Amino acid sequence: MKYIINIVLLLIINHSYSQTIKGKVLDSISQQPLELVNITLMTKNKGVYSNNNGSYSFEISNHLYDTLKVSSIGYNSKYIVLSQYKNQINVKLDIKLSEKITELDEVVIDFKKKKYNKKHTIGEDKVGNAGVSSLIGYETCVLLNNPLEKKGKLKNFYIKFKKRNNAVFTASLNIKFYSYDTKNKKPGYELYTKNLVVKPKNKKYTLNINLKDMDIFMPEEGMCIGIEFIDPNNESKKYDVIGPMYRFTYATEENLTWSKYRGKEWKKGIVKFDYKNDNRTGNVMIGADVLFTNE
């Protein structure tokens, strides 16, 4: 009986020291709530999303010597040192993010409206049925080279998926578009600064997304398209098997794929094969129809 009482007391004590940080993420100018903002620990791959009201809640009792990174497409990231809250049980904190300001190179304005009507299909589209899974919060990004080396306009793009038979949760997707940093050979600045969220099916198929009216342009050096597996309402559990799976092709010459977790640093590659000195990597099957001018 005494043993049982001790266990109950221990649980009560642990519960009483549970610490949570919660609040809203807001635009610093308009004060409007921001959804799908990533709130993540810097030293561990653990995080949450803000919901459609901008609200978030994160349990920090075991992470008081860590730092939270708060990031969203189109906004400057903010960092919160958690040790300042070690003597507080529940922390109420509204976080305000400022919009990114992109400095553009000097351009010559041409008032003649260009017609983009010459279509080229660009991307990985080889035969194969290999699949690779992902997790909530992970973004996979693929480089699409520009064969004409001139500015083009995206008409639509596709992602090839494979069914994950044992999936218990189907992720939503947040689609992102980046320039290609030719110096550092990785995704660069954002070309489109809004969330583009779609809900895929957990089956083998090609998901096509129409972008014709969105004015997303491919630079001369090509562009990178990122797909983040998201859970907008934070409904999935820690060990849930997530679907669907990406289909990918084997690559021996060039890696075109990167990945990152909730706005952290890009890491090269998504799949590497070490079996019997197999040095291949895997490039995810992503492609696009791009319109160019006839000039």
Score class of each variant (00 low, 15 high):
Ala130Lys: 03
Asn87Gln: 04
Lys115Gln: 10
Asn129Leu: 10
Asn129Thr: 13
Val142Ser: 06
Asp94Gln: 04
Leu104Trp: 11
Glu103Pro: 05
Asn129Cys: 04
Ser98Phe: 10
Ser133Ala: 14
Tyr158His: 04
Gly131Met: 05
Gly137Pro: 10
Ile159His: 02
Ile101Asp: 02
Pro147Asn: 09
Asn146Ser: 09
Lys160His: 08
Tyr116Leu: 15
Leu144Val: 03
Leu143Lys: 13
Leu93Cys: 03
Glu149Val: 07
Ala130Glu: 13
Pro147Ser: 07
Val132Arg: 04
Lys96Val: 01
Lys118Asp: 15
Arg164Asn: 06
Ser98Ala: 12
Lys162Pro: 00
Lys100Ala: 07
Ser133Met: 12
Ala130Ile: 03
Ser98Gly: 05
Ile136Phe: 07
Leu148Glu: 07
Lys113Cys: 06
His120Thr: 11
Glu124Trp: 05
Arg164Ala: 07
Phe111Lys: 00
Lys115Ile: 14
Ile122Asn: 09
Lys150Gln: 08
Thr121Gln: 11
Phe111Leu: 08
Val108Asn: 13
Glu103Leu: 15
Lys160Glu: 04
Ile159Ala: 03
Gly123Ile: 02
Leu135Trp: 09
Val107Pro: 06
Lys112Met: 08
Glu139Cys: 08
Asn156Lys: 15
Lys114Asp: 15
Asn129Gly: 09
Cys141Ser: 15
Ala130Leu: 14
Ser134His: 02
Lys96Arg: 12
Val142Thr: 12
Tyr138Gln: 15
Ile136Cys: 01
Glu103Thr: 15
Lys155Tyr: 12
Leu154Gln: 01
Ala171Ile: 00
Val142Pro: 03
Lys153Pro: 08
Leu143Trp: 15
Val91His: 11
Glu106Trp: 01
Ala130Pro: 00
Lys92His: 13
Lys126Met: 01
